[in-house]
Amino acid sequence: MSSPGGGEHETWPLWEVFVRASRGLSHLHAGSLHAPDAEMALRNARDLYTRRNEGVSIWVVPSSEITTSDPDEKDAFFESPKGKRYRHAGYYTEAEGVKHL
């Protein structure tokens, strides 16, 4: 495309969309979209991700502002908890005389 807005340097930035389905639940990542700014991103999110009555609240975040864990460092990040059963409540035996557990 050679029309205005079609050049690579002119494309709208990417936003990540989080939608809360109802009161008491957390916002969940729903997907991403393009928008020229935050206000339009919210409106586009409303049109794209709540068309079927999915939500009561929307967050949008510039994708560039999200810091992600490095897939290449997966072992260092995520292997460590394995085998550390003492990090789970079920590891511990119930002490006698402790109520309401």
């Binding site: 939608v19 969940l28 729903a30 997907g31 079927r52 009555n53 999915e54 939500g55």
Partner: peptide, 12 residues
């Protein structure tokens, strides 16, 4: 995204 993550209804 799991299918149960959103409550979907047509509404009145």
């Amino acid at each position: 995204m799991s299918e149960t993550s959103f409550q979907v209804s047509v509404g009145e």
